[in-house]
Simulated scan of single mutants.
Amino acid sequence: MKFDQFQFLIDTAFGECIDDGPPQGKYKDIPVEQLHPLVLAYIGDAYFNLYVRTKLLSYEQNKVRVLHTFGSKVVSATMQAIAYKSLENELTDQEKSVARRGRNSKSTVPKSATVGEYRSSTGFEALLGYLYLGKNHERLSEIVEKAFTIIAREMTNTAKSNGENK
């Protein structure tokens, strides 16, 4: 990150906390439908990451490194793309539209995923961000629970076919 961008965030985000209480941010008055899809994906990524980490706590409480490594695989672009493709037919037209906007947003693709996987996962994250910021928590819970189950099945099947589960 460039120094001037970092300084801007310190001055605006932290400045509001110090001077006037909690930060309001520039997005507070924008309807969730009008937010940039990468903003929605940013929030959706954070939400799904927290959901997965919380879910994994019930299985392995002491080994933070194991939790982190495993959780990273669960929330990877590859796994999110698989979940999204499995859930796509269950989405409403509005949800598909939000995911499509996220999928079509220009962003840098990491080496850990294909372009298609990364675009699909960005669409999935944008959908989660849209539901979270739109306070549609019941639907959000439904989608992340189904996604987690799909990913768990996929990872289990992959481990079995690779002989890792012996």
Rank of each mutant, 00 (worst) to 15 (best):
T78C: 14
T108Y: 04
P110G: 08
L87M: 13
N104S: 14
T122Y: 03
G123A: 14
D93A: 15
Y59T: 07
R101C: 11
R119L: 03
P110L: 08
L131V: 11
Q80M: 14
Y59V: 13
E125S: 10
F70Y: 06
K96W: 09
S105K: 13
L67I: 10
G71H: 06
P110A: 06
K73D: 15
V74D: 09
S112R: 05
V75Y: 00
I82E: 02
A77H: 09
A113I: 02
L133E: 03
Q61S: 15
S58D: 11
M79C: 14
V64T: 04
V64P: 01
M79F: 06
F70W: 07
S107H: 11
T69D: 15
T122R: 08
S120N: 08
E60Q: 03
S58K: 11
S72N: 11
A83E: 06
G123L: 12
T78M: 13
T108H: 04
G116V: 01
E88A: 08
R101N: 09
V75F: 06
S86D: 13
Q61G: 12
L57C: 09
R100L: 14
H68Y: 13
G116D: 12
E88I: 02
P110H: 07
S72G: 15
T122L: 08
S72I: 01
N104T: 11
V66G: 07
T122E: 08
S58C: 12
G129D: 00
Y84F: 15
V64W: 11
K85T: 08
T69V: 13
F70N: 10
G116F: 07
K106W: 10
A83M: 11
A77N: 09
V109S: 00
A77F: 12
G102R: 01
T78R: 13
V109R: 14
S112F: 08
Y59S: 14
Q61I: 13
L127K: 01
L67C: 03
V98C: 02
A99T: 05
Y84Q: 01
A81S: 06
H68L: 09
P110I: 05
T69M: 09
V98D: 01
Q80C: 10
L67F: 00
F70A: 09
F70L: 15
Y118W: 13
G102T: 09
Q80Y: 02
K96I: 03
S121H: 10
T92W: 06
Y84P: 00
G123I: 15
S76W: 05
V109D: 05
L127G: 03
L67T: 02
T122A: 11
T69Y: 07
V98H: 04
K111A: 14
V115E: 13
P110T: 08
R101M: 10
E125H: 08
G129N: 00
K96N: 12
S107K: 13
V64H: 12
G129K: 02
L57M: 15
K96H: 10
Y132A: 10
L131G: 01
R100W: 10
L133R: 02
S112G: 13
Y84V: 05
R65V: 02
K111W: 14
V115Q: 14
S86M: 05
A99Y: 04
N89T: 01
S105D: 03
S97N: 13
G123Y: 01
Y118A: 05
S58P: 02
A126T: 02
S72Y: 14
G116C: 00
Q80A: 10
E117M: 03
K111Q: 13
G116Y: 10
S86F: 03
L67D: 04
A126N: 07
A81K: 00
L67K: 06
R119A: 06
F124L: 05
